[in-house]
Design a protein around this nucleic acid. Structure first.
Lengths: 219, 219
DNA sequence: CCGATTATTGACCTTCTGGTCAATATCCCT
DNA sequence: AGGGATATTGACCAGAAGGTCAATAATCGG
């Protein structure tokens, strides 16, 4: 090693792999970060591992994000687009019976549970880090829970208005939460137990059956 | 510093705080560890913080546990005693109607959700670390989910046998999971959102109401 | 085609943290 | 009381991980 090299510390002559415009590199890093954070949690995630996943040098991450904390923030924001636009569109444009609407929405919810790997990662992050990252809890409250509750309440009101559901369905304040709970529990079980979780299809069938029977107007 | 002290490295003359028998110190350390792990997760937990919480020196932890991993394992085992003995006893000795039994068990479940700080810590640990610690997932499956499902199925069978519930209640394979789901979702929300979570009392009322209506035998 | 810009690298620095250990104060047994 | 056993301490170590940076090679504008 030359004296100059020793004095200046690192010398850093290397061959860059491939130069990409930021708008292509950024999402690459974000995707790698989301994976890593979801798999290991914030504290367990390694910047070096993010770099490896993205196929770049660690230093490059800091060219785009000033710190691990900011990268985490950005990762969350990146996969935190509104989740319920589908459901809300379906709700507002619906023509048929409330029972049919309920069945549709439940089918939609369980389908989302099964697919959407990225959404599962976000959900895991929310469960894991919400306590330490208030923005995560706020995001869940505003963008997921509140919107889901709103949808459930709208269905209940529609069913009561049309006489399909008994009036109590719109009067019980906790009912909306109870109605959507099986989907939440299902995703938690899926997350913890994977293949060993209770069967989602069976739950979906029983869920719909119980709701239709439990909400039905008394004869 | 003397030459001898410098040569030997640390010399370690200090005043021990209070000497306790292992059977008293051990649970102290475990309690501190459970707190720390539950609050920060495995990777985020610091051995020094566990020691601080327990009011001892870090080195003492290693007198009782060989490593962080083993301490984690022991912490889990320590707070992982059977959770459903209450409910199962109540179930086997019950005399009244299935409806009453169902109401009792639901009340019991929601009461547990509200109290039992240590159990919440365990639940958080399960959610957070299950993927990396297979024992946690197994414990949840065996000691919590399976037993809860067993209780739910027993109640359903009893209600169908007595004619209180419609026969489908025992025939739908996913129903037991759906029945207990609101309690799971409730605890998740409590965990993520704390005070901002949906009201547990309202959920409890709506939950029972929905079940009684949805399970009831058709007239 | 040349110079300014910047995407990219890998070595390095610093701090943090799991883990070790010799010394020591306390307890228990005889 | 005395002596062996052990609970307890704090300083220390090695390695890992977040973050820094000078050098460099692509890219782009003129």
């Amino acid at each position: 090693m030359t004296e100059a090299a020793a004095a200046t510390g690192g010398d850093g002559r290397q061959e860059p792999r491939a130069r990409l415009p930021p708008e292509a590199r950024m999402p690459q890093i974000l995707a790698a970060a989301i994976e890593e954070f979801a798999e290991r949690g914030y504290a367990g995630a390694r910047m070096a591992a993010v770099a490896r996943r993205a196929g770049i040098a660690k230093g490059l991450i800091y060219h785009y994000f000033p710190s691990k904390a900011e990268l985490f923030q950005a990762s969350i924001t990146a996969c935190a687009r509104p989740v319920f636009e589908d459901a809300e569109r379906r709700l507002s444009g619906f023509e048929g019976s409330a029972r049919q609407l309920l069945a549709d929405l439940i089918a939609l919810a369980y389908a989302r549970l099964r697919e959407e790997k990225q959404e599962r990662a976000l959900f895991r992050l929310i469960l894991t880090e919400a306590e330490r990252v208030p923005e995560l809890a706020e995001f869940y409250r505003r963008e997921i829970l509140d919107r889901a509750l709103g949808i459930a309440r709208a269905v209940l009101r529609a069913g009561v208005a049309s006489g399909e559901f008994r009036p109590a369905a719109a009067a019980l304040p906790g009912l909306a939460a109870v109605i959507m709970a099986p989907a939440v529990a299902g995703s938690v079980w899926q997350m913890i137990l994977g293949e060993a979780a209770p069967d989602l299809a069976a739950m979906q069938a029983a869920h719909l059956d119980l709701l239709l029977a439990g909400l039905g107007a008394a004869p």
